[in-house]
């Protein structure tokens, strides 16, 4: 395909040909039957496409669009605030517990070690299960299907 002709034809469709380009385009059409037939085909397809459109959803969809979106934004902000609050509170509580546990001279060393190992194990298990669940969910192509 003649690249120059392609550009001229598209510019012609958009009505942005300059006078010189118009002459050049008409000359190409007059002297080359293949290009002329190509142009006619493209024109007919454009005609077909001009009678087509993307189908509209129901009118009510637009009425509730902003409200639905606003709820999503609001909930997103609320979740961020809740998460930040929880993280801060949990971190402070954990620090207090660990601090008291370590400074408690009445508890034997092996109990302290056992408790630390238990807490660490539960924490790693929790993270591992959570990561697996989230990863599987995000990659599950059939999550919309009710089982």
């Amino acid at each position: 395909m003649n690249e120059r002709f392609l550009i001229l034809m598209e510019k012609n469709f958009e009505n942005i040909l300059t006078d010189e380009e118009k002459v050049e385009f008409e000359n190409l059409l007059a002297t080359n039957n293949k290009l002329k037939s190509e142009f006619e085909d493209q024109k007919r397809v454009k005609e077909v496409l001009s009678k087509m459109k993307l189908s509209n959803p129901q009118k009510e969809v637009w009425d509730g669009y902003w409200m639905g979106l606003y709820n999503k934004i609001e909930r997103g902000i609320a979740w961020i605030a809740v998460s930040i609050g929880l993280i801060i509170l949990l971190a402070a509580a954990s620090y207090e517990i660990v601090d008291k546990f370590i400074s408690d001279t009445g508890t034997p060393g092996y109990i302290k070690f056992g408790t630390a190992a238990l807490v660490f194990g539960i924490f790693v298990l929790f993270i591992s299960v959570l990561r697996e669940k989230l990863f599987t969910y995000s990659k599950d192509k059939y999550k919309e299907i009710k089982r």
């Binding site: 395909m1 085909d41 493209q42 496409l49």
Partner: peptide, 8 residues
């Protein structure tokens, strides 16, 4: 252009 050509 090529999309229209495929349709044509």
């Amino acid at each position: 252009y090529y999309a229209r050509k495929k349709i044509a």
